[in-house]
Design a protein around this nucleic acid. Structure first.
Length: 708
RNA sequence: GGCCCGGUAGCUCAGUUGGUUAGAGCAGGGAACUCAUAAUUCCUUGGUCGGGGGUUCAAGUCCCUCCCGGGCUACCA
């Protein structure tokens, strides 16, 4: 489909902004993976696609938490943002820009949108009664108040409804209300709030919901049923309380001093602010990008990916705000359902409330990416992660069928490379190429499960081919050398075709496939033409099987974390604390430490003076006349390279170094050597000569990342 | 209570505008193979498509009704 349409689309894509009050978990990942796959697909097909996101940082919850932790909100949100960004990166989720709602760009844009909403006459002021905590000095959101139910008398009930009798009320109705922040008895106070009169946009919203094609049918239906009402008997859209009185962590409203925008006002504007940051970054790099080309242009599509819980905000308020401000309305709001684990809601005590980081401590990101893809459709349905199903699906589909194709063919052509011409394969390649359009269409409409099904069907046709042609038997007779090469050329091409189709889901596999066959995967169109005549690299496993034990360990760790957070005593791990004895089953000897005793204590600031970075060796050469040195060209990503001479010649062959990641001392003063200038050094342990051991980061590290 | 979405082989699901003996993957059973990460390939068991009624030459597919599961919302039409 992209082949026929030379005019590339321009797409701005967002995922909902994660709240800076907690870590990313596997439920969140449904959305970020869904979006990342879509974005990677769009980029692969040649569309101009920009993926922005940001941390959502404002609101009472952040303010309270920072207070409890004895630090500023800014410190708290910076810390959370670091964690979020690392988690995303390690799941191979690539944003073009990741910002924060607590940015100057956002403050400015909030002001602009606010001004237009004022100007449109949509703002009104009204007194609001709310409970106030006199000790904490703050107004209390419903969830920060508990008390006795006014109807049934059940004690210690939440501020909005009774868990015992189910009746709904406001916090002010509670008998003996208590602030969960301070334990103080809240008092009723009145404060003026600002409201946006959404009802004034009723006609526009109805029109947009019914005719824009931006919403899934079930969502349009839901909005009409619950908020807009039938055409002949419309419901009235409620005014939206958009301000909060001080103290509040957020942006102060310029024309209403002492009042702050409610977090849900500035959060979606964060999409635009993040785009602004991206534009600025591009412009600094010499590619001039203007915000208006992305948010006020008729030919740019805006796609939001969100969960069904925030439908209301993104399908009524947000289009209303955009319309009023003269900004682009969403082309599509892609709404997904929730993740269940083992058929139930994620649960901390059952160990199914798995944080992204906990997952990564035990497993690779690609299996989860694939599993989610195999389950996701364009509908709002929830989907289930069953642990056994996860293990068997990933192992059967990816390891057993897809990767197996390469695994069984590659080593027979390590010496010869691929055939010069693509042999007759009985139409297999062509058949799979023809499936490309349907697979692409499935990706485009977010029906990934359908796409995965189609791709796997290709693998199911390819494996019998290998089976029937038995390269392992052919090679026993030297007369068949050419035929072996042909058979493996076909098998590897069918594999590569699948790797291209799966590239949005499995970017790492695509990259490794490019390296294996010496032709990087960069475009969807590569699936339409066989690759011939390239050398084939030494085969390395492309993916590890998922082991049930590791999945279980992940669940166990989640349970332990939950127990620890709940204040339950945790079994102390042997040897966990410094200086304790432990069961030394490794039998590591004392010599290394004795040879080089620990250095004098230093403070953290001393450590930060050394800027350690991850770098990729992109070139490694022998140095004429040197018997210990190799000359390395290191990449820090983005085209940044450094020249380093490293004394590792006796331990490493240059060709084994190219491509690998190393730890690089980046800010070491350059040193003039006999053979040239060495900028920085590569970190290694060992006494020297043959015994030099370079350091490698774990899977997922990227060139340019600093080591903290 | 209202609204919405589902109920197809043991499990996860496909089934296009109603059209011939209802499909796939996994699991189960049997065999082959041994290049490959105990991977692969071939054959095979298995379903009154939630129940009932209706429309039609023809219904998993449309209509009515009931049962079950999930979601949203709530005593307001």
């Amino acid at each position: 489909m992209p082949a026929e349409t030379p005019v590339n689309r321009r797409l701005l894509v967002t995922s909902a902004l994660p709240y800076a009050n907690g870590p990313i978990h596997i439920g969140h990942l449904v959305e970020y993976l869904q979006t990342d796959i879509w974005v990677r697909f769009q980029k692969l097909t040649g569309n101009r696609c920009v993926y922005v996101c940001a941390d959502d940082t404002h609101g009472t919850a952040i303010m309270i938490r920072a207070r409890q932790e004895g630090r500023t909100e800014v410190e708290l949100i910076a810390d959370m943002q670091r964690q979020h960004e690392t988690d995303f990166a390690d799941f191979l989720i690539e944003f073009d820009n990741y910002g924060s709602t607590n940015s100057e760009e956002n403050r400015q844009l909030c002001g602009e949108l606010w001004a237009s909403i004022r100007k449109a006459g949509l703002v009104k002021e009204q007194e609001v009664q709310q409970l106030f905590d006199p000790e904490a000095g703050t107004f209390l959101a419903d969830r920060f108040v508990r008390g006795t139910c006014p109807k049934c008398g059940a004690a210690d009930q939440p501020g909005d409804n009774c868990s015992s009798c189910g009746s709904a009320y406001t916090p002010a109705d509670l008998v003996n209300p208590v602030s969960t922040l301070s334990g103080a008895t809240p008092e009723v106070r009145t404060a003026p709030h600002l409201f946006i009169e959404l009802e004034k946009l009723h006609g526009f919203l109805r029109d947009w919901v019914e005719t824009s094609d931006a919403l899934q049918p079930e969502i349009a239906n839901y909005l009409k049923g619950h908020f807009l009402g039938p055409k002949d008997k419309p419901l009235e859209l409620r005014d939206w309380d958009i301000s909060r009185p001080a103290p509040y962590f957020g942006f102060e409203i310029p024309d209403a001093p002492g009042n702050y925008w409610y977090v849900w006002f500035d959060a979606p504007i964060g999409y635009i602010a993040s785009t602004q940051q991206w534009c600025d970054k591009q412009t600094v790099q010499g590619n001039v990008e203007k915000l208006d080309d992305w948010w006020r242009s008729g030919d740019c599509e805006v796609h939001h990916f969100i969960g069904k819980d925030i439908t209301y905000f993104h399908t009524l308020f947000w289009p209303g705000m955009l319309k009023t401000a003269g900004l682009a309305l969403p082309t599509k709001v892609h709404i997904h359902g929730f993740l269940t684990v083992g058929g139930e809601k994620m649960s901390k005590s059952k160990g199914t409330f798995v944080n992204a980081r906990t997952y990564l401590n035990h497993l690779d990101p690609q299996p989860l990416r694939y599993y989610y893809a195999s389950k996701l459709s364009a509908r709002v349905d929830d989907f289930d992660l069953t642990l056994d199903d996860f293990v068997s699906k990933v192992n059967t589909d990816l390891v057993g069928k897809v990767v197996n194709l390469a695994s069984r063919a590659a080593k027979f052509v390590e010496k010869t490379g691929l055939s010069k011409e693509y042999p007759d394969d009985g139409g297999l390649f062509e058949q799979a190429a023809a499936a490309g359009d349907e697979i692409a269409a499935a990706y485009e409409r977010c029906d990934y499960s359908h796409a995965m099904r189609l791709v796997l069907a290709c693998a199911d046709r390819a494996n019998p081919f290998v089976e029937e042609n038995k390269p392992w038997e052919l090679r026993k007779d030297p007369a068949n050398t050419d035929r072996v090469q042909e058979v493996c050329t076909i098998a590897l091409n069918l594999f590569r075709q699948i790797a291209i189709y799966l590239a949005p889901v499995l970017p790492k596999l695509a990259q490794q496939t490019g390296e294996l066959l010496n032709d990087p995967i960069t475009s969807w169109d590569q699936s339409q033409t066989p690759l011939v005549g390239t050398p084939v690299a030494k085969f390395q496993h492309l993916m590890q099987r998922v082991e049930t034990e590791k999945v279980q360990a992940m669940i166990d760790e989640t349970k332990q974390n939950a127990a620890a957070a709940a204040g339950e005593p945790e079994a102390s791990a042997p040897g966990a604390a410094a200086g304790t004895t432990f069961d030394d089953k490794w039998n590591d000897g004392p010599e290394p430490l004795a040879t080089e005793p620990l250095a004098a204590e230093c403070v953290y600031d001393d450590f930060t003076k050394v800027d350690l970075r991850i770098a990729r060796v992109v070139e490694a050469n022998h140095v004429e006349g040197a018997d210990k040195l190799l000359q390395l060209t290191l990449s820090l990503g983005g085209g940044e390279t450094r020249n380093v001479f490293a004394g590792i010649k006796k331990a490493y062959a240059p060709e084994d170094l190219v491509g690998r990641l190393v730890m690089y001392v980046a800010n070491l003063a350059p040193r003039k050597m006999k053979f040239g200038v060495s900028t920085g050094m590569v970190a290694a342990s060992g006494p020297g000569n043959e015994e030099v051991f370079l350091l490698s980061p774990d899977e997922g590290a990227k060139p340019g990342q600093r080591v903290h």
